[in-house]
Nucleic acid binder design. Sequence first.
DNA 1: TAGCGGTACCTAGCGATACCGTCTACCAGT
DNA 2: ACTGGTAGACGGTATCGCTAGGTACCGCTA
Lengths: 114, 114
Amino acid sequence: MGNPMTEMLKGTLEGIVLAVLSVRPAYGYEITTRLREQGFSDLVEGTVYALLVRVERRGLVDVEKVASEKGPPRKVYSLNARGREQLGEFWRTWSLLAERIEQLRTEPAEGQNR
Amino acid sequence: MGNPMTEMLKGTLEGIVLAVLSVRPAYGYEITTRLREQGFSDLVEGTVYALLVRVERRGLVDVEKVASEKGPPRKVYSLNARGREQLGEFWRTWSLLAERIEQLRTEPAEGQNR
DNA sequence: TAGCGGTACCTAGCGATACCGTCTACCAGT
DNA sequence: ACTGGTAGACGGTATCGCTAGGTACCGCTA
């Protein structure tokens, strides 16, 4: 079965991470903990790392290795031009979906609009 | 890759179909064509049928076979008590996700220039 | 009467993605 | 020496929507 939030995140998590990176560059561990604090409490570290590898392969982010004071070096990701384009695409798709779903929520009173 | 809307529908399509059924009972072909007209233009028949089989197995809907004037008999699905409960759960999860994502859209770098 | 399009349902296999568990590796404080 | 926090990686699993077909019935038309 799996909890519903997990399934809903499919297809949206990438946009969420890109949105985080659009604010400022960040590294994986940081992204995970920040999103966890912002309410995505079930988010799993491994998921974010895998997603970052994917967006890097698709050329949506630039990567820079930065030495860390604690632990291994950080891979700092920053959104590039293609990434910002993709983020725009995400917002468009999201808006469409959200609009249609909200329509379904308030529709029951109306019934048939045909 | 796949188009982004397809990925975003994962986890939400079930709720969408349950919402449609909450208005009034319907059969698979009807649900597909109605949603297609309402903007989910890429939605595929097979997807809806498979989804209906799943929600039936999980006991969220009641099924009744009704003879059709054209073609094979219709399987009319209606939302039962468990289905309505599940729909409520869907709306709660959706609201949470939508709220957090909208927050990301307008958020201006929390810990830095604010 | 043969063919076509619309209605209505069903299925096997594929691709994408999030989760799970576990691992490596480094450092500070006790 | 041990624990806990930081940082990244990987193989396996499950879910779910799509692809790409198939079956079956009906009315209309060439």
